[in-house]
Amino acid sequence: MAHSLRPVPLDFLHTAPVRLVFTAEAAAPPEAVFGVLSDVPSWPEWYGAVSRARPVGGGAGREIRLKGGTRFRETIVAADPGERYAYRIDRTNVPGFRALLEEWRLTPSGAGTCITYTFAADGTPLLRTALRLVRPGMSRAFHDAVRALDRRLGARTAGT
């Protein structure tokens, strides 16, 4: 991976030049959703864009490969059971990024969970424009992933 990104703190979620925020409902409770989010190797099973995911650094980080060849080396910056799962991208093979932080915020919603996903980025002007243009595709990928995550949790519950 050729591009190192600058490390950013969690408050970058609120100050990033590009912030894409998506929300969806899951039928499962926050603790169950968090369990799937924090199970790094399971991501390809429910997030269609992910082809490979493995923990690195004794579980402090992740190595993610997306379909199409994009790769990320990440540091987990927040893993609060039932509340949020966040990671900072440290290295990628995608040019143009300067900083990238993603958060999955979990809020109880009836018997289920409201999931708010924030993609916070800084990059070259061309990358910033490209990210805004791909927003609809990212929204679709997020909503598809939440539906698959919910199906996975429903199947797990039905099998117990």
Results as ranks from 00 to 15, higher is better:
M1T: 14
H3V: 08
L5I: 04
R6F: 04
V8D: 09
P9V: 10
L10R: 14
T15G: 05
A16P: 06
V18Y: 11
P29I: 12
P30R: 06
F34G: 01
V36R: 01
L37M: 06
L37N: 01
P41N: 11
P41K: 07
W43T: 06
W43P: 01
E45W: 00
Y47P: 01
V50E: 00
G57M: 13
G57S: 09
A60F: 07
R62M: 15
E63P: 00
L66K: 02
T70W: 04
R71Q: 12
I76P: 00
I76V: 14
V77T: 09
V77L: 04
D80F: 01
P81M: 05
P81D: 07
I89S: 08
D90E: 14
R91N: 07
V94S: 04
P95D: 07
F97S: 06
F97D: 07
R98F: 09
E102R: 13
R105V: 12
L106H: 10
T107D: 10
G112Y: 10
T124F: 13
R132C: 05
L133A: 13
R135M: 03
P136H: 05
M138H: 11
R140G: 02
R140L: 15
A141N: 07
F142K: 05
D144N: 14
D144P: 00
V146K: 03
D150F: 10
R151V: 07
L153A: 07
L153T: 08
L153F: 09
G154H: 13
T157C: 03
A158Q: 13
